[in-house]
């Protein structure tokens, strides 16, 4: 049950120099893959581009074929109220349950705001959020 809410994020290793994001985004455009959300984490000299896309398997294959270092990471997408306190509600649920957030990013679209989370105990997190009446993105959205 919990598994149906675990979403495959693609993570791409990228050198920190001009044109690398354009190369990744261009490859996804050419493969007609839609990006729902993404973030860039940076370190000295390199970074990791993380993205939720509509066809993660295709995106993985496309980018790997082009020579990129790509991996899948299990994340969850929690729907938030797009008003003051929305993030606080979700964060409190996880904090109270002792679940640590490794990283997070968010987007706000037509259907409201979504917080994408990588946590240390992903199935636990799903259960806690559902038990508290929270709503999660379904993995079936990403095929």
């Amino acid at each position: 049950m919990e598994k149906s809410y675990i979403v495959k994020q693609i993570s791409i290793f990228s050198e920190n120099r001009p044109g690398r994001l354009a190369a990744i985004a261009g490859a996804l455009r050419d493969a007609k893959i839609n990006i729902f959300a993404f973030s860039i984490a940076e370190a000295n000299g390199f970074g990791v581009v993380r993205a939720l896309v509509d066809r993660p398997e295709d995106a993985h294959r496309t980018l790997t074929d082009l020579g990129f270092r790509v991996s899948f990471t299990d994340v969850i997408g929690v729907k938030m109220r797009d008003e003051p306190g929305g993030l606080s509600e979700v964060a409190s649920v996880l904090g109270d349950a002792g679940i640590n957030i490794e990283y997070a990013y968010a987007y706000s679209g037509r259907d409201g705001a979504v917080l994408i989370l990588r946590v240390d105990q992903v199935e636990d997190a799903v259960r806690q959020i559902l038990d508290r009446g929270g709503e999660l993105l379904k993995a079936s959205l990403f095929r």
């Binding site: 993570s11 290793f13 940076e42 370190a43 390199f46 990791v48 270092r69 990471t73 990283y103």
Partner: peptide, 16 residues
């Protein structure tokens, strides 16, 4: 150097 496929993690701290 190039990070190997097995060792690639999407966590910056792992890569560091």
């Amino acid at each position: 150097v190039e990070v190997s496929e097995e060792a690639f993690s999407d966590k910056i701290t792992d890569l560091m």
